[in-house]
C-alpha cells in the first residue's frame, strides 16, 4: 500500500484499530487540536446530572468545576450538558446553589 496523503492531511477521525501503519502519522503526531471530542466518554456514566433551565440564573459557578468541559456557555447563557462527554461525577450538582441541577442514577 502506498501513502496517498501527507502526514498533516491525515485526520484523527480516519485512524482506527484497522488502519495500516503506512496510513498513520509518523511518531504519534497529530496535526489537529481537540480530537478527543470524537470519543464518547458519556457511556462511562453511572449517575447523570439533569439541567433545570428555569432555575438557572447563569452564575456560571458550575462551569469551571467540570473536569470534562461538558457545560457549554453561549452568549452569557449556560447551556444544557454535553452528555457525550460528561462522566457524571456530580461536581456541578454540588456546586449549584440554585438547585438547577439534579443528579440521578442512570436509567432510574
Amino acid at each position: 500500500m502506498t501513502m496517498t496523503k501527507k502526514a498533516n492531511e491525515i485526520k484523527a477521525s480516519e485512524i482506527n484499530e484497522s488502519t495500516p501503519w503506512q496510513e498513520m502519522t509518523i511518531g504519534g503526531e497529530i496535526y489537529e487540536g481537540g480530537t478527543s471530542a470524537l470519543v464518547n466518554t458519556g457511556e462511562w456514566r453511572t449517575m447523570i446530572p439533569i439541567f433545570h433551565e428555569e432555575k438557572c440564573n447563569h452564575c456560571m459557578l458550575c462551569v469551571p468545576f467540570c473536569p470534562d468541559s461538558s457545560i457549554p456557555v453561549e452568549n452569557g447563557k449556560r447551556k444544557d450538558f454535553d452528555l457525550m462527554h460528561c462522566k457524571g461525577c456530580g461536581i456541578c450538582f454540588k456546586v449549584c446553589a440554585h438547585k438547577a441541577i439534579s443528579y440521578e442514577k442512570v436509567g432510574a
Binding site: 481537540g34 478527543s36 471530542a37 470524537l38 470519543v39 464518547n40 466518554t41 462511562w44 456514566r45 447563569h58 452564575c59 456560571m60 459557578l61 462551569v63 469551571p64 468545576f65 467540570c66 473536569p67 470534562d68 468541559s69 461538558s70 456557555v73 452568549n75 452569557g76 454535553d82 457525550m84 462527554h85 460528561c86 462522566k87 457524571g88 461525577c89 456530580g90 461536581i91
Partner: peptide, 28 residues
C-alpha cells in the same frame, strides 16, 4: 467569571481522566 467561561475551550472533553478528576479542572 462570566467573561472567562465564554472563551473557547482549550482542553476539550473525551479525555480519559477519571470522573471527577482534579487534574482536568486545573488544566482547564
Amino acid at each position: 467569571l462570566k467573561q472567562q467561561v465564554e472563551k473557547p475551550e482549550r482542553f476539550v472533553g473525551g479525555h480519559r481522566l477519571c470522573a471527577g478528576c482534579g487534574a482536568a479542572i486545573t488544566v482547564r
